[in-house]
């Protein structure tokens, strides 16, 4: 990268070139990062309601983010259900409560494990992908090229990806939960003999809307957070090719952390509402 470009990339991120910059404290950097993400989120909501609406690009991103992540999420969901069943069986059999396995697994998967594990897998695959792609577009001046063509790059690149992440994650979680329950059914039948019909009857018997609705709503927020963080890190990348790896890495780390924080808040809110 030329010296001109290094200066430019520093400038775009609102920073002075590295040599002149005094190293700010980690505390200051943290708050700068939080403020940056908040500002970026505000920009996203403003652009979301403004035309033109890029439906074609949104559909393409929904396909790439949703459909292409399905095998990974499916396999993880299956293993999750299977392992949970196999691990809990010995403890439950000690109390003669093996018949509780379907209900216990279904509530665990639908309420907590399914959304969180799927969101973490999603942050790893989709968040890092978005971060790396946007950072690479930034480094190769593709985002600048859109801007000088008179096309709003934020609308085309960020809004479509965040929307796709926000709408596809709940779908993936529902599919992952279903496959997880099937995995549990397989687990139950390794040492037992329970019919498909009976297993799912028992699994759904203990599930209520109070389990399903909040769990689904929080996955929209997980998707929004993962999409925003991935786009923020990529869009504001400013260290050339090194920045691409850094954007991908921090998109996963911060995205995963956000999933846990949102989950903690969601659990508190759900408890307040339903209790």
């Amino acid at each position: 990268m030329s010296k001109d470009d290094q200066i430019l990339h520093s400038a775009v991120a609102g920073k002075a070139p590295a040599k002149e910059e005094a190293s700010p404290s980690a505390f200051k950097l943290f708050f700068e990062e939080v403020a940056g993400i908040a500002q970026f989120t505000g920009h996203f909501f403003r652009e979301l309601i403004k035309p033109p609406y890029e439906f074609k690009e949104f559909a393409k991103q929904a396909y790439l983010i949703g459909y292409k992540t399905l095998p990974l999420v499916g396999i993880t969901g299956f293993i999750m259900g299977l392992v949970l069943t196999i691990q809990s069986r010995p403890t439950l059999s000690e109390f003669g409560a093996e018949s509780w396995i379907p209900a216990m697994v279904s509530v665990s998967i639908v309420r907590e494990i399914g959304p969180v594990i799927t969101a973490l897998i999603f942050a790893g695959k989709v968040g890092s992908g978005i971060g790396a792609e946007l950072a690479s577009m930034k480094v190769t001046e593709q985002i600048d090229a859109m801007e000088v063509s008179g096309i709003n790059p934020f609308n085309y690149v960020v809004v479509t990806r965040v929307m796709a992440a926000m709408l596809m994650l709940p779908v993936l979680v529902i599919i992952s939960d279903a496959i997880g329950l099937y995995g549990s059914y397989v687990g139950v039948n390794i040492k037992g003999d329970v019919s498909f019909h009976l297993y799912f009857l028992q699994a759904f018997e203990k599930l209520e809307f109070a389990d399903v609705i909040p769990a689904t709503i929080k996955t929209f927020v997980f998707g929004l957070a993962i999409g925003i963080i991935g786009c923020f890190k990529g869009y504001n990348s400013n260290k050339g090719t090194e920045g691409v790896g850094e954007a991908a890495n921090s998109a996963v780390v911060i995205g995963s952390l956000c999933v846990f924080i949102i989950d903690m808040i969601a659990v508190q809110v759900t408890t307040l509402i339903y209790n």
């Binding site: 190769t140 001046e141 090229a145 000088v148």
Partner: peptide
């Protein structure tokens, strides 16, 4: 500004083609 930009062509150093 976007309307003015549509009358300007910009050839970037890296060509900046959309990958």
């Amino acid at each position: 500004l976007n309307e003015v930009r549509k009358k300007i062509g910009f050839l970037f150093q890296s060509a900046a083609l959309y990958d």
